[in-house]
């Protein structure tokens, strides 16, 4: 599918999707969205661009390989589990802190948010990995 329109469109749509995804991730705790939706959206964006060009190219343009995303996601999830044990005596307990960021105001950050980020990365990795494998181009290192 090397249609020019699609290629041009994909460039924008792709970034649009990624931005959407990040917003979904960030706002997920308060508005529709969250790690799953965000991760799936990013995956969709990469798939979209590879439909426009080809999968190999889309893959090369990735900064982190799918398995990297998976590992990153699992690690983040694991890290989000720990603070609860040490600070609240329960696994997975939410630990919150608020920080003040200029222009955005007070933001509450907590381990559930970290957990959501982990899910986000893991889902990206999973989507990409299965997609690339289906596209039959993936090589292990």
């Amino acid at each position: 599918m090397n249609s020019v329109i699609l290629q041009v469109a994909s460039k924008y749509v792709k970034w649009l999707l990624v931005v959407f995804a990040l917003i979904a991730l960030y706002r997920g705790h308060n508005f529709p969205g969250g790690g799953f939706i965000g991760g799936l959206l990013v995956g969709l964006s990469v798939i979209f661009s590879s439909l426009a060009y080809d999968a190999q190219r889309a893959r090369n343009s990735l900064k982190i390989q799918p398995e990297g995303y998976i590992a990153l996601g699992l690690l983040t999830i694991f890290l989000s589990i720990l603070p609860g044990v040490f600070l609240k005596q329960y696994f997975m307990a939410g630990v919150w802190t608020s920080i003040h960021i200029p222009f955005l105001g007070v933001i509450k950050l907590g381990t559930p948010f970290l957990f959501d980020i982990g899910v986000f990365f893991a889902v990206i990795g999973v989507t990409l990995m299965s997609f690339f494998t289906f596209s039959n181009i993936m090589k292990w290192k």
Partner: peptide, 13 residues
């Protein structure tokens, strides 16, 4: 288990 017979943990408190 010996003392209480049942142990529980509430995840995320």
């Amino acid at each position: 288990l010996k003392d209480t017979k049942i142990l529980t943990l509430n995840m995320g408190s």
